[in-house]
Amino acid sequence: MWFSLLASLSAAALIYLSDRQQRWLDRPLPTVVRALGVLMALASAALWVLTLGLGVGLMVAMWLLLLAVLLMSLWAGHYRDSFQKVNGKPGGVR
């Protein structure tokens, strides 16, 4: 179960960081990394299904992937977008 969790979170990170609109890196990771992330997400879903059964396993796999990508994008938006103040000015204004 811990390996399934690690694979799900790693897949979400790879998929997010290879997207062209991600905000953590200056440039997104190559598209090969996205394919690896999708394969890892499918493998982690299969591991969740083997561990918890078909219905619950698929639901856990989908929710973990969704929550991980959502929280990464919200976290990046909170710390990297322009609404943050830097020296009393919004972060996007220079």
Rank of each mutant, 00 (worst) to 15 (best):
M1W: 13
M1R: 08
W2T: 14
F3S: 12
S4L: 00
S4A: 15
L5S: 11
L5Y: 11
L6R: 09
A7F: 13
A7C: 07
S8I: 05
S10P: 03
S10I: 01
A11F: 05
A13M: 08
L14D: 09
Y16L: 11
Y16A: 04
R20I: 01
Q21Y: 15
Q22T: 05
R23K: 13
R23N: 12
R23S: 14
L25A: 09
P28M: 10
T31F: 01
R34S: 00
L36R: 00
L36D: 06
G37T: 10
V38Q: 09
M40T: 03
A41Y: 05
L42F: 10
A43D: 02
A43M: 02
A45S: 12
A45N: 04
A45Q: 01
W48Q: 04
V49L: 00
V49E: 02
L50R: 12
T51A: 15
L52M: 10
L52A: 09
G53M: 10
M59I: 10
M59C: 11
V60Q: 04
V60G: 01
W63M: 15
L64S: 11
L67Y: 10
L67P: 02
L67H: 02
A68E: 14
V69P: 01
V69G: 11
L70V: 09
L70G: 07
M72H: 00
S73P: 03
L74E: 14
W75Y: 14
A76G: 11
A76I: 08
G77T: 09
H78P: 00
H78C: 03
R80W: 08
D81W: 07
F83L: 11
Q84M: 11
K85L: 15
V86R: 12
V86F: 04
V86S: 04
N87H: 14
K89P: 04
P90H: 14
G91C: 02
G91R: 14
G91T: 00
G91W: 07
V93H: 05
R94P: 14
